[in-house]
């Protein structure tokens, strides 16, 4: 569904952030993108929705080359791709409801959106999503009145309001505490499976990634160095990605105990409903 071919990005400063990335994400697959800071993870997902212009290569979404579209066509392409941000990127002075509805902007003309005249189907969908992320009573609260985890839930709802085919997720848990991080990751991955969404999730917490995703891709210095199921991550592959370090506490053997420890401190069901994945 999403196909990257020979994607490279060189910034104006001369830094080569991505080199010849070729990657295919089938529909409904949740993929984690791991790698050290500065490896180009953020650049990669921003090239997909053209927040960053790739220098060369193509990005195909359902056969359409996104790197070649402009203006209205670009906006129509972008509205099929939801994005969730590290710092939530909410408009803090708007209410929760307005933030969620802003996911529909590309479906609406300027004046209707300016006057907040959203169709009632959008409003019902927004309420359903708020219920799903557990914030249905907060719809009138202002963005800056929420906690970090709540803000990220609103960010998730906004992305899903777009009815996207693909979710781009940029370090969703980097600003959150460990417990909330798990809840947010679980919520994102559950929603993807419910709605048959493909997702590319940038994350530097390898353990968290392994628990929730179908596939892991490793980037190092802008190059693809690993691609496989989470179980295939070994000490050697982690060394390939991150460099020399004692990885024994991160790889397979200790995973169960880590899970158990997590379950002990974190017996929470995901907020809203639904069970453990």
């Amino acid at each position: 569904m999403l196909t990257l071919t020979g994607l490279s990005k060189r910034y104006d400063t001369g830094d080569l952030a991505l080199t010849d990335i070729t990657l295919e994400v089938p529909a409904g697959q949740v993929m984690a993108l791991i790698g050290p800071s500065g490896a180009g993870k953020s650049t990669l997902i921003r090239c997909v929705n053209r927040l960053v212009e790739p220098s060369s290569g193509t990005v195909l979404l359902d056969g359409q080359d996104i790197t070649r579209v402009r203006g209205t066509k670009l906006r129509q392409a972008r509205r099929q791709i939801g994005m969730i941000f590290q710092n939530y990127a909410l408009v803090e002075r708007l209410s929760v409801m307005e933030n969620v509805l802003s996911g529909r902007l590309a479906y609406l003309g300027f004046w209707r959106s300016f006057l907040r005249q959203f169709p009632s189907s959008d409003i019902k969908q927004a309420l359903n999503l708020l219920e799903r992320v557990g914030l249905e009573t907060m719809f009138d609260k202002r963005g800056d009145a929420l906690s970090g985890g709540q803000k990220q839930r609103v960010g998730i709802a906004r992305a899903l309001m777009q009815n996207p085919k693909l979710l781009l997720v940029d370090e969703p848990t980097a600003s959150l505490d460990p417990k909330t991080s798990r809840q947010i990751m679980r919520l994102i991955c559950e929603l993807c499976r419910e709605q048959q969404l493909a997702a590319v999730i940038n994350i530097h917490d390898v353990v968290l990634a392994q628990q929730f995703v179908d596939r892991v891709v490793g980037l190092r210095a802008g190059k693809l160095v690993f691609d496989g199921p989470p179980s295939a991550l070994t000490e050697k592959t982690l060394t390939d990605i991150y460099g020399e370090e004692d990885w024994s506490t991160t790889t397979g053997e200790t995973d169960e105990s880590d899970e158990a420890a997590a379950a002990a401190i974190d017996p929470l069901k995901p907020i809203g409903q639904g069970g453990h994945p």
Partner: peptide, 21 residues
């Protein structure tokens, strides 16, 4: 800048980004 980036990513038009972000 992040809310501006976020709304551009939803496919919102220029004037919509100005009005919302």
């Amino acid at each position: 800048p992040t809310p501006v980036e976020a709304l551009s990513a939803t496919g919102a038009g220029r004037s919509q980004v100005l009005a919302y972000a």
